[in-house]
Structures are given as structure tokens and as C-alpha cells.
Design a protein around this nucleic acid. Sequence first.
RNA 1: GGCGCCAUGGUGCAUCGGUUAGCACACGGCUCUUUCAAGGCCGGGAGAGGGGUUCAACUCCCCUUGGCGCCGCCA
Length: 490
Amino acid sequence: MTPDKPRLRMAPSPTGSPHIGNIRTAVFDYLYARHTGGTFVLRIEDTDRNRFVEGSLEEMMRALRWMGMQWDEGPEVGGPFGPYFQSQRLDFYHKYVRRLIDSGRAYYCYCTKERLEEMRKVQEAAKLPPGYDRRCRDLDEQSRNQCAQENPKPVIRFAMNTQGVTELEDAVRGHVSFRNDLQDDFVIIKADGYPTYHFASVVDDHLMKITHVVRGDEWLSSAPKHMQIYEAFGWQPPVWVHPSLILDETGKKLSKRSEAQTRFLSYIEDGYLPDAMLNFLATMGWSAGEDRKLYSREELIEKFSLEGITNHPAIFDLAKLNDLQGEYVRMLTVGQLADMILPRLQQAGFISEPPSAQELDYLHKVTGLIQDRLVLLKEAPEMVSFFYSDEIEYDEKGAKKHLAKDTTPAILKAVSIKLASLEEWSLANIEAALRGVADALGVKAADIIHPTRMAVTGRTWGPGLFELIEVVGQSRVVARIDCCAEKYGH
RNA sequence: GGCGCCAUGGUGCAUCGGUUAGCACACGGCUCUUUCAAGGCCGGGAGAGGGGUUCAACUCCCCUUGGCGCCGCCA
């Protein structure tokens, strides 16, 4: 335990699949903790029993670990400030809320949901700022007892200061100030005895000695609530860090509506690389103050600072993510890439489990040929299919363009014969053979190459033809060309 | 509606009083080439508007406009 070092927490609620915004916040937490030699804690804010979603905590942990952002304290790893589930910390909240009630900074509220709803309607109609009217704030003993009889399950509200302003310093916003007469007496303990976020997070952040609270800009408006709780307890508030939100392509806050863009696990499934994602997320809303695109994890940790966090929202740019992903794929060694796509090729039925030595050897050759063009790992099976399957499906447009000519069968036949006659199957010989056919027939090399590519791969695009022919192998190539020549022979 | 935050090209950032306003992505063109990528080269494209402060403002202040966020017994 190093009390003088920063302690940051990521505090998700298990109410759904983690999304890009959650993870980006975690990236900032993680980077700053690592940069300072501090502690990164994971705390689960499961105080809403109605919205609990089975499996979402597991997804969150999986996402963090996939990103290489292992927490130092929290679920599965423990730590000196546990438990790390708020649902297991109820005693703490009740103990501290008692203090607030005793000091007059919190009170029981017996108002029914119906009355609250009615009140809001009236406020809305009168164009008044919405908020609790504090009817229960100054109840005398007698009326309190009466109310308690009518509503035995009261909530507890925090008694906000109504005078002056609440001010705070935010690491990315600077000085921020809120008028207290506009503040609301919010609920801190619900009727079911569970605390609300506003209360639980403050109590826990204090108890867990959190020094920096990093959370989305959406929380800034409720920061005065938290500040006043700290004041009421006489506690030292943390350094506030409210980075701007990540917006979807329409400029709105990322939400369930843009599910495809936001659900973090889908990026794992698509085969993005953790380091590419880390690089992307870190540089979205943060900058080292220089014109640079690529940062390794170590560089990110070394350079990360709160000052570099941007104060304006950023729109999620998939094209940029993909560009970075391509960069990272190309930086991999062939062996690394091969290992990464192996499971996907096994799933496609191209490689057995476990793979044989020959299959691995072949995989490496194939991988070397597609590395430059592969972006998402999930594209690999489709991209390499013709290396594994001899059932060639001809691309319609390509066939029309390169195979439908009268001369096609003759060309294909000539290529096949020439290739079949090669005694040494080498790249140089293959290229010489194909160019030789072109010369012999008096046509351009392209007139040989395109039909041959179609015959061997069924497509108009892909790795270099000579290289790919070499890897697929003599007999298979010759067979495919013969087959194609026959198909287009009539 | 109230409150809060924000405002550099389509997008993400740089420049934190003096620059021909820079980089990257995307886009367009050229190049390399057997195709597709990757690479190289070139190009179009920005300080929301208005007031101040200052010798000087994208940079500081104010207003307007615009965008976003929050206003739950949800987080």
C-alpha cells in the first residue's frame, strides 16, 4: 500500500455490456495510475437491483483484461479496501448516513412517487426548475411520526446548502461554479435501503482513498452534490477529472441506439488488436501535445498526463480506428499474426485442431502474403479461403472481364501446360513461365495474369499472383487452371 | 425551460499573443505494380459571428449563435 501515490478507480455498474465510453474512461484511469506508479482499482456499483444484467460484470472484466488493463484491486484480485461490490458495503452507507442525519445534513422523506410525479408535472407546466420541494426537510416530530405511518418505507435525502455557490476545480475544466439555490435535495438512500450513486460513490471513494475521480462530462452537473457531501463529512474531495464525451457519428452521446458502434465486445470479436484500440482510445480526447499517430503502450504510460486531456467532445471515427488497426497488423511478425488468425481459420475448418507442423508451416506462408491487406482478424478466413479450398467460386464481374473471352481457354491451357512442366517450383520459375507464355502467345503479361488469377483464386484482387501460385502448389494450381479452362471452353 | 460544459478543415489532434495555421485519418489525383492493399508524391479543405484588451489575437475577456450534457427512489 502506497498512500501517497494516486489511486484511481473505474466504477462500472453491471447494467449492460461495456461500451466504448466506459473503456475510454478506464484507459485514462489506467494510464494515469501506471504513469504515476499509483493504483488502479475496479469497483462495482451494483446498487440498482432492478437494472442488474447477468454477465455484464464478466464482460467488463474481460474487456479490461483484453485491453491489458488489469486492475490492482477489485473483483477476483481483492485488496485492502474491500469489499469491492457496493451491494456488499451497505453497512458502511448506513453508518455514514446516520452521521448525516444526526448533523442535520440528511433527512427522511416520506413523499410518495405519485406526489413527486405530480409535483414535477406542476413544475414543468409552470416552467419552473424541477426538483424536490423539500416538504419533508423540516418536519417536526409529530408530523414525521404521522408521515412514517403513511409511508413506512421512506427514502433519505441530502439537505443541500441553499445559499451561495458550490465551487470545484476540475483538472480539465478548471474552475467550475454552481448556484446552490438551484440545487436539489437528492435521494441518497432509496426505499429499499440501497444507496444511490451520489452517496455510495462518495463514501467509497473516500473509504478507498481514491485521489482522482475520472468520469465522463455527463457527471459534471452532479459534481456539486458530491462536493457538498464531502463538505458535510469534512472529507477531502478527490481531484476531479471530467473528460468530454465520445459522440457518435451524428454528434450525440454514444448510447444503445448506436449499439453497433458502442458495444465494446464487438471490437474484440471483429479482431481488433488491443494495442491498436489502446492507441486509438488514448488519443481520442487526449494528446501528448505533438503531431504523432502511433504510441506504444509504454510510450502512452510515459507521456500520459491530465493536462493533455482535451476539453471538447470527440466524434468516434471508425475509419481512424481501422487505419491504426492496419498499422498494428503490419507491425506484427508473421508468426504473431499467424497465431492470431489460427483460431479463426480452425473455426472455418481450414486447419485442424491441433494443427500439424505442415499446416503451421503453410499458415505462415499464407499469412505472409495477406499481412499487408488484412485489417480485421475476422476478415482472415474469407481472405485466405482459396489457399485452403479448391472449390473456386468465380467472382461474377471478374469472370466477365477476364474469363469470358474466346481466347481464354487457349491461354489457360497454355499456362497450365507450362506450369505443369516446371521441374523446380520456385517463384522465379513461375514468373518466368507466365511471362514466357505471354511472349509465346504474343500478348501482354496482364492478359495472362488476370485470367490465371481468376482461375486460381476466383477473384480479381489479392496477393501477388506469382507468390500465391507458389504457395498454393503446383498440382493444385494446375488442376484449378484446367478446371477453369474446361468451364469456359464451350 | 433551468443549469453546466464546449467551439481550429468532413473527422481526431497540434499551435497555449507574433507561424505561409502544422500533423494524421478520410477524400481527389499521380506514381509503383499483374490485381487489391501497403508505400511514395501532389492537391482541395479550418480558426462560428460580433464586440473588446493589445503594437499584435485562433490563442485573453464579454455577448450572440450553435453543439452536447444534466435536471430519476438510473448510474
